[in-house]
């Protein structure tokens, strides 16, 4: 697969601007109802991993999912409409921001039960293996999820059966309000792979090129039948757990430090230095993305609400 660094930049920027809009709408308007959870600062993980995936590859996501969806090619309009609770959304308003499934792009499950998606990823990977298909599953979860029993059961089984799954642990330093030191004695969550006889790799999750390389290597390992890899992406969530989190537990200096490690600014600087990107070209990219976000908002805004009784549909076939 040929790496297009400009596409990586575009992908990260799309996630950033999309989620900035979500935060703004959530805080300042009545358009978005309920919880809002964004991944600002962590975009390189979604974009870098997403760039190695083919349409047939599967993503199992979690409560911080917008980046994963966009990086897999989900339609921003349908995501926005779902978050608005409109009938035109990916899931007709039944999921909202927290559980969006986009089977059209093989994001087959977004679960907010922490660690709940990890055994499901074993199942989707098993199906690829069973049908001898050349595709992989990526399961995204946080550092906190690796404390769940489901993580351990799933990694053990995936490794035992050499299944084509990449366990992408986004260590964003906080599990709720707990710092990593407060919820585990393990310094690197990737070390937990040792217990299951699979490779565990620590990667700078704010360096999208390293994210991409690591995911490509793990994918090749999956496709050669050697089995799963656990990759710990060390990153940081600039915001709180959700937009209503006051972040009392997050030191301001720490946030400022990580903002200097912004994955978008890092790649942008590299591309300008390499002469691949000019300021004008960057501005054009910004404009296109902002316009697409505005179009998504307009689409969601103008879309019809579901009828109350539509709630009774889609339970059984």
């Amino acid at each position: 697969m040929h790496l297009n660094k400009l596409n990586l930049l575009r992908s990260m920027l799309q996630i950033r601007r999309f989620e900035e809009k979500l935060e703004q709408l959530s805080r300042e308007t009545e358009k978005i109802y309920g919880m809002m959870i964004v991944s600002t600062g962590q975009e390189a993980v979604a974009s870098g991993v997403g760039a190695v995936l083919d349409p047939a590859d599967v993503i199992i996501s979690n409560h911080r999912s917008h980046g994963h969806l966009l990086a897999k090619g989900a339609d921003p309009k349908l995501i926005m409409a779902e978050i608005f609770g409109k009938a035109t959304g990916y899931n007709k308003g039944k999921s909202g921001t927290l559980h969006i499934a986009a089977p059209e792009v093989n994001v087959l499950c977004t679960t907010t039960v922490v660690g709940g998606g990890i055994p499901i990823a074993v199942g989707t990977a098993f199906a690829s293996h069973y049908k001898q298909q050349k595709n992989v599953t990526v399961c995204f979860f946080g550092d906190g999820a690796s404390d769940e029993g489901s993580f351990h059961e799933a990694l053990n089984l995936a490794s035992l059966w050499n299944l084509p799954v990449i366990f992408a642990c986004e260590n964003n330093v906080y599990s709720g309000a707990q710092r990593v030191e407060e919820h585990s004695k393990v310094k690197n969550f990737a070390d937990r792979a040792i217990a299951y006889g699979m490779p565990g790799i620590v990667v700078d999750g704010n360096n999208v090129l390293e994210v991409y390389q690591s995911a490509m290597k793990a994918k090749e390992r999956c496709l050669s039948g050697e089995g799963p890899t656990l990759i710990e992406y060390k990153t940081y969530r600039w915001g709180g757990h959700s937009t209503h989190d006051q972040q009392s537990y997050q030191p301001q200096e720490e946030i400022e430090l990580w903002k200097k490690l912004c994955p978008i600014e890092q790649l942008k600087a590299t591309l300008i230095k390499e002469g691949v990107l000019g300021q004008e070209q960057y501005q054009q990219m910004e404009n296109e993305i902002k316009q697409a976000v505005e179009e998504a908002v307009k689409f969601a805004d103008e879309s019809p609400w579901p009828q109350p009784e539509d709630a009774m549909e889609d339970i059984y076939i």
């Binding site: 087959l108 499950c109 199942g123 098993f126």
Partner: peptide
């Protein structure tokens, strides 16, 4: 293995893929 959550998750994931 003795892993009921993984067994049930296996079924969920495999079924959405058509098995």
């Amino acid at each position: 293995p003795v892993s009921e959550a993984a067994i049930a998750g296996l079924a969920v994931g495999a079924s959405v893929m058509g098995l």
